[in-house]
């Protein structure tokens, strides 16, 4: 494997469109639930252990060679909010375009043909990691990091926080990121023998509810 490929995949400058999404933090800021660095850290921790774990499990399973179309169904079942399904597929479509150019593979081409409207983003991320020769746990790390790095960056813009504080909180969450990525990779291994239901489905009621509230806004800075 090439460790450099992991840096490229996890880099916010990788042209996959993630910067347009706030991971629910724009809605949380509007509700006053996130208003400073501490509440942002609590938000990121909650997200990390819910959708972060679920997305990382899907990414690790895709990187490990699970059928990406079955994983796409599993992602739908784990994403009851239509706004979040739409965002995941839009991000998946953008990442697929970038990944096909960066890490060409027959599996990515096949997915592009089978899901012209886009597959869920973590599955594309996992397949891209696979094409780059990375391990499932690497894909899990990239998914988890993006899952909380995105909201942290968005909150800096929304609340004019000190970017150094945001970096600090991401560093403090480091050990939990390790735990979540390892748990996701373990589950992906189990799913090989036990079936796809062994993948995590951790969820958060507020992220689902506020995603739909946010989608109904007429003016918003972020797409989700």
């Amino acid at each position: 494997m090439s460790r450099a490929a992991l840096l490229l995949l996890a880099d916010g400058r990788f042209p996959a469109g993630g910067h347009a999404h706030s991971g629910g933090v724009e809605a949380a800021v509007a509700h006053g639930a996130v208003h400073d660095t501490d509440s942002l850290e609590a938000f990121c921790r909650g997200r990390l252990h819910t959708t972060g774990l679920t997305m990382a499990g899907l990414a690790a399973a895709a990187a490990g060679g699970h059928d990406p179309l079955l994983l796409d169904d599993a992602a739908d079942a784990r994403t009851p909010a239509p706004a979040l399904r739409a965002a995941a597929r839009r991000l998946g479509r953008q990442m697929l375009r970038a990944a096909r150019a960066t890490f060409p593979s027959a599996e990515l081409e096949h997915l592009a043909t089978a899901r012209p409207q886009g597959a869920h983003q973590p599955i594309v991320l996992g397949l891209a990691a696979r094409a780059a020769g990375l391990a499932p746990v690497d894909a899990a790390y990239a998914a988890v990091y993006e899952n909380i790095g995105g909201p942290a960056t968005a909150a800096v813009r929304l609340l004019s926080l000190d970017p150094l504080d945001a970096s600090g909180l991401l560093a403090r969450l480091g050990p939990e990121i390790d735990d979540v990525a390892a748990a996701a990779a373990d589950a992906a291994t189990r799913a090989m023998t036990e079936g796809i239901d062994a993948l995590p489905s951790a969820s958060s009621p507020l992220l689902d509810i506020t995603a739909e509230q946010h989608a109904a806004w007429t003016v918003r800075l972020f797409a989700s």
């Binding site: 921790r45 009851p80 995590p200």
Partner: peptide, 22 residues
């Protein structure tokens, strides 16, 4: 699969009471 969701509340779950979950 139609729906697959797991929720976890109460100590020692990390972040369960915070702004992203409840």
């Amino acid at each position: 699969p139609l729906l697959d969701q797991q929720t976890a509340y109460g100590a020692p779950e990390p972040g369960w009471d915070g702004p992203a979950v409840l």
